[in-house]
Design a protein around this nucleic acid. Structure first.
Lengths: 172, 172
DNA sequence: CGTACATAGTTCAACTTTCAAGAACGAGTC
DNA sequence: GACTCGTTCTTGAAAGTTGAACTATGTACG
């Protein structure tokens, strides 16, 4: 923030949210926190891990040879490498994931899904899908489903890595 | 949660997500985690607290006499009383919130927003609104805004505390 | 080669969240 | 009163997250 940044004209009121925007924002916060809580509890209970960890196993299961480089996995799950390190350490303790050195880059590590990990996924996936379905898809009309997808893609676009004021937009 | 292999028994075959449902689900996860991360960082940087804590101050600021019973506040923020206790302890250390005994119920506590807390809110609200606006409302058409509100209300309805058969929803 | 800088991943300390008690009070009942 | 049960809120330990510092390796360039 430059020296001018703090000295914006006090007369320039911030654009507050309209009434409908406020209602939508509240509904958004309400629904997303309830859903995240719901899925976290569901998976903690049925699979013994939080939602994010489950997502890591899912990603690994869909990757070629059931393995991914740590950085790729972190990017896919939208978490920091630090957080991933801890998560993989925990999943490794559970025997669901193993680490493996990358032959072509000695700094690199693969995280790979073990057979046991795949088993956990197979056992718990149906319940998880059912929970998601019940919370979201069973309640939305086909039109709403499409709309929601559209809206979420628009939002994600504006938040994509390097954030809002894109890091080096002139290099694109 | 893709096709997890060969679960060919029709009796136990769960209803997987359709292609469009999967795309929407991914987009939803993607967008919501990016946004939550974004707001958390924005507020941590500008206000020195995570999004949830900020929400607590907002709720207090809108309550009569800037105070709420702990349980009410927890309900409003959709968090457990335990989590709230810790959070309020932290905010109290910052001098933004104070506790006060409830005269009519000796078990009860009020959390109340201090003048300093209100100040923090005043200073940081414009930036926060701008962040929300930039991430969401500046990108959505009026129709999408309405749709999103509708959709989120539908979802929340199905997840409301003590909500739908929290039991074995997939056995309906 | 050597220097400089970038990348991959881990680790540490501080912080936040969860879960399972637990302490204190209120309310109904006898 | 005394008993029971539910409610309110707190506590402590374990688990998870964050951001910065750190190790080790790759890469670009003179």
């Amino acid at each position: 923030m430059g020296p001018m940044g703090d000295m914006t004209d006090p007369a320039t009121e911030p654009r507050w949210l309209t009434d409908e925007e406020q209602r939508t924002w509240r509904a958004y916060l309400h629904a997303t926190t309830l859903l995240e809580d719901h899925l976290d509890r569901q998976l903690q209970r049925d699979a013994g891990m939080p939602h994010i960890y489950y997502g890591l196993l899912v990603q690994l299961s869909q990757a070629p040879r059931r393995r991914l480089r740590m950085t790729e996995l972190a990017k896919g799950a939208k978490i920091t490498r630090s957080r991933l390190s801890h998560a993989i350490a925990r999943l490794e303790k559970n025997g669901w994931v193993r680490r493996e050195n990358c032959p072509s880059d000695k700094r690199g590590q693969f995280a790979l899904l073990t057979d046991e990990g795949l088993d956990v996924l197979r056992r718990t996936a149906p319940g998880h899908v059912a929970a998601v379905r019940q919370a979201m898809f069973d309640r939305l009309s086909p039109g709403q489903l499409t709309q929601l997808g559209e809206i979420m893609r628009v939002m994600a676009e504006g938040l994509e890595p390097a954030g809002p004021d894109a890091d080096l937009p002139w290099l694109r």
